[in-house]
Amino acid sequence: MKAVMIREFGDPRGLAVVDLPVPVPAPGEALITTEAVGVAGADVLIRSGALAAYGFREGHIPGGEIAGTVTAVGDGVDPAWVGQRVWAFTGTGGGYAEQAVAPIGEVLSLPAGLSAVDAVTLGSSGVVAHFGLAHAHFSPGETVLVRGAAGSIGIMAVQLAISGGASAVAVTTSSTERGRRLRSLGATHVLDRSGAGGPDDPTGYDVIIDVVAGPDMPAFLDRLNPNGRLVAVGAVGGQPPADFGTRLMAAFQKSMSFATFSAATVTAAAQQAVRTEQFAAVDRGELHTVVHEVLPLEQAVVAHQKMDGGEVFGRIVLLNSPFH
């Protein structure tokens, strides 16, 4: 089969199409012929070499989120899965390929009306947004700021905060056009990347969902209301300064909180329950996916170049089409 491998860390051109044996599903696994593969921020970080300290090496096949058809199963898996259209989480990689394996507990049947492209646009990002808001103890009537709202996680966080009863949902973004699109998805206030807005924008927030982190994160801690909570659900902007906690201590009497959230701390069963409902909500038109662009799997380099450019709105999806 064809797959896309990280030949060399760094530039997207370090990705290369290679021939590999078709993986064999181990006990408890399903083999899936991919139709669509989501391009995630984590894929970009792995490809850049930024996560080498976590065990990722050159030769890695990126891609943790796929949709397609189950073509074989390992021991202990119900054969009735074969032939089903599914979404699946492959783990730390393996998805940028014509076929991939996934633990059966991370495989979910797709509603008949849900496309593979929509499935990989929503499958992981919707769960992170849902549990990120829960981790922040978000309640109806509170004000929410989504930092880095143009990505798939941020787009879902905006919609879920609005449907959850937020009194206001502000977003940070880089352009007027992005702001317009985020307003169409429910955002009530649009700020620039620094968090600056106009006189009618909130001056403080009860909850901040931060996809970016990076060197500017401490300034957003300053935007929390008393008892406010900032939850970092990503770090596409890199690590915050080592001393960012001094901002919390300096505002001791405001009782503000900082936390990180990773979906790895939520059981697969709990994630699948939320994902099932969100897939159904998209099918009903109550939740909206945003796809920036669909490219052939062989153009993974182009997808990563666009991600590095920082102008992707929503998610780029790779399609398993015939390689040339």
Rank of each mutant, 00 (worst) to 15 (best):
A280D: 02
L248D: 04
D283K: 09
A281M: 11
Q272V: 05
G214K: 07
A259G: 15
P226I: 00
Q272S: 14
D206S: 09
V282T: 08
M256N: 14
D243C: 11
T246A: 13
V233L: 05
G214C: 07
P202R: 07
Q278N: 05
A263R: 13
Q278M: 14
L230R: 06
G204S: 14
K254E: 10
D200I: 00
A219W: 02
A270M: 05
A242M: 06
T267G: 15
A264T: 15
A269N: 07
L248G: 12
A280W: 01
D201K: 05
A259F: 04
V211E: 03
R229H: 15
P240T: 06
N227L: 10
P199S: 09
A273L: 12
D222A: 13
G245F: 12
S257N: 10
D201P: 11
A281N: 09
Q239W: 13
T265R: 14
Q271F: 11
Q271R: 15
V212K: 04
R247E: 11
R275G: 10
T267F: 08
A269G: 07
V231I: 11
P218K: 03
P218I: 02
F258P: 05
F261I: 11
V274E: 06
T265F: 09
Q278G: 08
D216K: 01
P226Y: 03
A268M: 05
L224Y: 03
Q271V: 07
D206Y: 02
T276M: 05
D200W: 08
G237I: 02
L221M: 07
P240R: 02
